[in-house]
Design a protein around this nucleic acid. Structure first.
Lengths: 124, 124
DNA sequence: ACCTGGTTCCATGCAATGCAAGATACCTGG
DNA sequence: CCAGGTATCTTGCATTGCATGGAACCAGGT
């Protein structure tokens, strides 16, 4: 997807990311700490959730502000030092909560898209 | 769900609705025109996408502003007249576009939540 | 006539979020 | 010493869900 892509597909995808990106980033930190560019690349690889630095870094700042993640600086063998983000207990709880809520939400949207919506019971 | 529910579950669910509500409303109009309160009740019945008038009516105004729906007034047997919303060609195209994009997005989120995220190849 | 309640519509202001654009800093190699 | 890649972060804007409040129409009781 080229930059400046303002097609209808891009618009629908952009709206979809809202509110989900936060928890996908938390999910990426579930098994080990991650740093910014690493998260960015993982989202890029997923295809549907590709985004930019201008989205991820403010998001990471909010997560840190809300005590969902903690950060530690770590040297890199090639380049500037990296700030690694790791889940706190609150962060892990938020991720678990989302994991519980997500299936119901997903199925509800699936139902809206695939189920016919005839008259709401004309017998009334 | 009582009003004023500010639990973590409610927070995650609120973020999820962002961007999806628009297309679920369009989906509800797919088979026949609908009016505001009717849409509100259908969303309420779905459980996961329950919302309020303060959300739906501004959304409907935007849909009308963007020529995704047209409206016609119609008398009611019990109460004030209703404004019925029907899909335009653009609205149907937007719904079709979302229906094409949604499965990829849904599967991507599922993958983030269920797939383990080990080291990104320690061999490097 | 009056008032209460139900139904239906809408507007205003706030907070959260994705994003484009730009700025800063570190390291390596020519 | 400078160019390029890596990495972090800030600022300002547009969009959107939502709480709150208001207005209009109708039926039924007193």
């Amino acid at each position: 997807m080229e930059p400046g892509d303002s097609t209808k597909q891009a618009r629908a995808a952009a709206q979809l990311r809202k509110g989900v990106l936060e928890y996908c980033v938390l999910a990426l930190m579930r098994d080990r700490p991650r740093y910014g560019v690493e998260l960015l690349q993982a989202l890029e690889d997923s295809g549907a959730l590709a985004t930019s630095q201008g989205t991820v870094y403010p998001l990471l700042s909010r997560l840190r502000r809300d005590d969902l993640v903690t950060t530690t600086w770590q040297e890199s063998v090639s380049g500037p030092p990296r700030r690694y983000y790791a889940l706190t207990d609150s962060g892990r709880a938020a991720l678990d909560e989302f994991t519980r809520v997500w299936p119901g939400f997903r199925n509800a949207v699936d139902a809206f898209l695939t189920t016919p919506h005839p008259s709401t019971g004309d017998l009334v």
